[in-house]
Design a protein around this nucleic acid. Sequence first.
DNA 1: TTTTTAAATGAGCGATCGCTCATTTATATT
DNA 2: AATATAAATGAGCGATCGCTCATTTAAAAA
Lengths: 196, 196
Amino acid sequence: MRPRDENKIQGIREKAIEMITNEGLENFGINRLAKAAGVSPATIYIYYKDKDDLINQISVEEGLRMCGATLEGFEADMPFEKGLWIQWKNRAKYALNNQVGASFYDQLRNSTYREQMLKAISDEMKKKAGPFVKNAIKNGEINEISMEVFWSVALAPLYSLVKFHQDEHTFSGKKFVFSEKIMKETFNYVIKALKK
Amino acid sequence: MRPRDENKIQGIREKAIEMITNEGLENFGINRLAKAAGVSPATIYIYYKDKDDLINQISVEEGLRMCGATLEGFEADMPFEKGLWIQWKNRAKYALNNQVGASFYDQLRNSTYREQMLKAISDEMKKKAGPFVKNAIKNGEINEISMEVFWSVALAPLYSLVKFHQDEHTFSGKKFVFSEKIMKETFNYVIKALKK
DNA sequence: TTTTTAAATGAGCGATCGCTCATTTATATT
DNA sequence: AATATAAATGAGCGATCGCTCATTTAAAAA
């Protein structure tokens, strides 16, 4: 029998992410994707049940890719400040080196397709980030805290900073540029907040 | 001459927000909107140049509405902690009492339509939030800080907390419920971070 | 009451949508 | 070399899209 052409399905995936990011979910369509990826519309339905299935599968893949990048070199038993800083560096690096992926994630995470992606991400994050916080509490590095409050204080500021960079949009009228110096400054505020 | 029916245009606005929120920007269309609002498709084009114009106008209106709600009773010369707490309370109240509007905002802010809405919001926020931070620095309540870092440390945690509530989605498997107690707990971390 | 004028309409245009199917193509197996 | 089989295709279906236009409707101005 004829084997699947991995280049074809990879092209479909990449073009889908690119189109959704650049033209918006509202202008994304199977016929357009087929044309952009250089395949027949019918080919896409060999790999995906329908349009929703395609978007959901790709969003989960991209979400997990981001999780993996964020947790690279991170271990739950690390000292608190060190472990958190690794997550900050990883996530910033991912967002800066993969702007299309990061923008795709933001759009999907705030669309009607959010559910499956968020489920996949939270399941993945739970594994390492949950124990990490529990350890930090047990070791007396930080006070007792729920996962949601921790996330909001420890990580939301970073995502906000990255978003300012993505937006090329600013309060002062001139473009905001992300830098390690600014990231470190913000990180220090967060550490001051959380450390006993 | 025949006057405009204000109920009609108001109905168009409200149904558009409702449809985009519940069905997604990707399933929003003029014909569908017309049917939902009980008007002819042609009527919509009396008020809006085209579909993009409609989405942009409505997104700017909703963005400014949220700004107004967030800044209610807030003044730039307030003491730092008091002024920031008012913004937190206002924004939380808005998000909780107007879930459709808040969800609409998130979706548009992360779509290809973000530009006009963000411009309108940042212009509006600059007026009061900018001087507020400058005052707090001048009065020695907080250290010198850029608008972007301030925003990321002082407000991003709140938005994250509200989003957890909206998502009905959690790390611990059971639903996260927003409360004033949790908000205050998170606020205290932020104050600890920023106050000298 | 008549005239004027903009609001409002419903039918429908061409384009594109998501998706299917009969057919062709390429490769692993025999 | 012949066969079997799944991948891949292009044409095209019915539905819906964004949008227009000739016509009707309603209220202000005369």
